[in-house]
């Protein structure tokens, strides 16, 4: 299929209820960092975008939320697909992006180039959706912070090596900072800026 026609395929078959379902998982995920959620509905997203990332894009993005894409996504039909189905514009400026989508293995050199919000309006920050190899087995990480009773252990495969360092730089900026959603196929977990991560 050509890039053009891929952009028009897919979308939720029942947008009202499917986006509600995905949102509730996102809300639960953000409220309980590290909890694993699985997207049930197919968003029909083009490769190489994952199913959870595609569903999240359709659930949260629209013409008020410029979207940044990593290089691999940017040269695929992903941008046109998100644009067609959500109305969001694709931006090359990280600082403008309300959402950023990154393919596996891509490490942003810094979270600081994305919007971190301001001290007065820390909510105006980018949410990064980063695809990893897996969320069921891999390297162990211990999470703690709001939403977590004592601590929670998660296993993540293919987390970019620089991630922990970037996260360690993000945490002290609070209340500013990016929030992250890690996706792997149909699964995702959320890492709000408040979460502490120890390898």
């Amino acid at each position: 299929m050509s890039t053009d026609t891929q952009a028009f395929t897919g979308g939720f078959s029942d947008p009202v209820f499917q986006s509600q379902s995905v949102f509730r998982k996102l809300m639960d995920g953000m409220a309980r960092p590290g909890s694993i959620h699985t997207v049930e509905h197919d968003a029909g997203q083009p490769d190489p975008l994952g199913a959870a990332a595609g569903a999240i894009a359709l659930t949260l993005c629209d013409h008020d939320t410029p979207v940044w894409l990593s290089a691999g996504f940017a040269k695929s039909a992903v941008g046109e697909w998100i644009g067609f189905h959500s109305g969001a514009t694709i931006t090359r400026e990280k600082a403008e992006a309300r959402f950023a989508f990154a393919e596996p293995g891509v490490t942003p050199s810094s979270f600081g180039l994305f919007s971190l919000g301001t001290q007065e309006y820390p909510d105006r920050s980018t949410t990064l959706v980063i695809e990893v190899a897996g969320l069921s087995e891999g390297q162990s990480f211990t999470l703690s912070g709001p939403g977590i009773l004592q601590s929670k252990t998660v296993e993540i495969a293919g987390l970019p090596e620089a991630f922990l360092r970037l996260w360690a730089d993000n945490r002290p900026l609070f209340p500013r900072g990016v929030d992250v959603i890690l996706t792997a196929g149909r699964s995702f977990l959320c890492l709000p800026r408040t979460t502490k991560i120890v390898a």
Partner: peptide
Amino acid sequence: DEQTKRMIRRAILKAIAIPGY
């Protein structure tokens, strides 16, 4: 409408990420 819900949903996720703000 769906547009309004999306805007409120985004606000809710940021509110959870910044407790009490």
